[in-house]
Design a protein around this nucleic acid. Structure first.
Lengths: 216, 216
DNA sequence: TTGCGTGTGATCTGTGATATTTTATACCAT
DNA sequence: ATGGTATAAAATATCACAGATCACACGCAA
């Protein structure tokens, strides 16, 4: 029994490419809540036919990033404070589980990687570092090797991502020091201090929603 | 501006019908872990073309009820104890949140409805009352009016559903008294005793996994 | 002869594109 | 305002294609 010497070529799979492109756009806050999108437009922009886009869109709908309207168009869910509160409590519950699992397995190299992520030069454009924040959390969560909860959390971030679009404008005024909690988390990881790590993560999640849920 | 007097018949939407049919089949434990399914076969059985089935299947994949294989076929995820443990902790975390919200809003009529569900005649066929269990939990959870967490929990049940197929055979031997915890939950709802309701729900979820995760 | 690996082809699969049908909305005339 | 029509979009069906699987026969070696 010989092991394969060469890797499989990852054939076509336009559906995956389309999904990846849209996923990236969502985490970037490229879509505004309430905005409607058209399959044909997306297909044109991606340079494919409607079929792969449709399947990618079906997945996004299943994940809550898009919703079907009664008139059979697609729209980015409009802002909704109740939904936002649910996103927050779901994130608090599930990301705590991921952190717990991750701390069972994480090694020094990954922690160093996390430090590298947050110490990367902040973007010069004045836009908040959405991608940096995403990368920090998910390289941490991926250490959990979770195959059930991690996809759920990805879906939550996807829903949350659209709302970030609303925040980007006033971000400069908000001046949220997001890296503070990230540094606390890294320190706790080094000390293997679970309590402290959980507390810092919870604070970081709370922080994420401060601008969108001012009352809390 | 006149309001429509009669409800729309939700014609067409074959995609939704296909999804509903498959969803029902999963919660019924109709599919066995490891089993492969074919778009054409499903389309034939449902009496539609491949297209609606394909989109329904895309959603099921997004929810984790089906997975794509490297050879581009579809299969029901094979049994996996790690996945099972994740399902359990995710259910414990999220359903606790739903119960909390539900207890803020539930009224007497719904509690009576819950009693009616569990007092319905147990199926004569010897098969466990999967649907009865499903209906009990979700009529309760629906009271939370959740639009974020509830779909996540549905997805978890969908993944869990396939594994139930494995249990059905030995169920008679297991002889699990599932209605015990359900009755405790109802009593706690009547007393508005949150602590007790949460405890009973957790026990009920633990019970669900007893046969599949004997070690715990 | 027996056993095992190998190639072959029929048949199945998902994928992607496109044609057809259905529905919703905007527009225009009345 | 009302009603009909035109237009555009989504939903569905159908088709062409490339890859994967399986059964089976063939050939070589022990």
């Amino acid at each position: 029994m010989s092991q394969p010497k060469i890797a499989r070529i990852d054939q076509s799979k336009l559906r995956e490419s389309a999904y990846d492109a849209l996923h990236e756009a969502f985490t970037r806050g490229a879509f505004a809540p309430g905005e409607t999108v058209s399959l044909r437009t997306l297909a044109d922009q991606l340079g494919t036919s409607m079929t792969p886009v449709r399947e990618a869109v079906r997945r996004l709908v299943a994940e809550g990033a898009l919703v079907d309207t009664p008139s059979r168009t697609l729209e980015v869910p409009p802002f909704d404070a109740d939904r936002m509160r649910e996103l927050k409590s779901a994130r608090l519950a599930l990301e705590a589980l991921l952190l717990e699992e991750a701390m069972d397995r994480i090694d020094k190299d990954v922690i160093t990687g996390l430090e590298k992520i947050i110490s990367a030069p902040r973007s010069e454009t004045g836009t908040p570092d959405l991608k940096q924040n995403y990368d920090f959390h998910f390289t941490l969560y991926r250490q959990s090797r979770s195959r059930v909860i991690l996809p759920l959390v990805e879906a939550l971030w996807l829903q949350y991502g659209a709302f970030l679009n609303l925040v980007v404008r006033e971000q400069a005024a908000g001046e949220i020091p997001e890296h503070i909690h990230h540094e606390e988390i890294i320190a706790a990881l080094r000390d293997n201090d679970r309590k402290s790590a959980q507390r810092s993560l919870a604070l970081d999640i709370e922080r994420s929603f401060k601008l969108l849920l001012p009352e809390s």
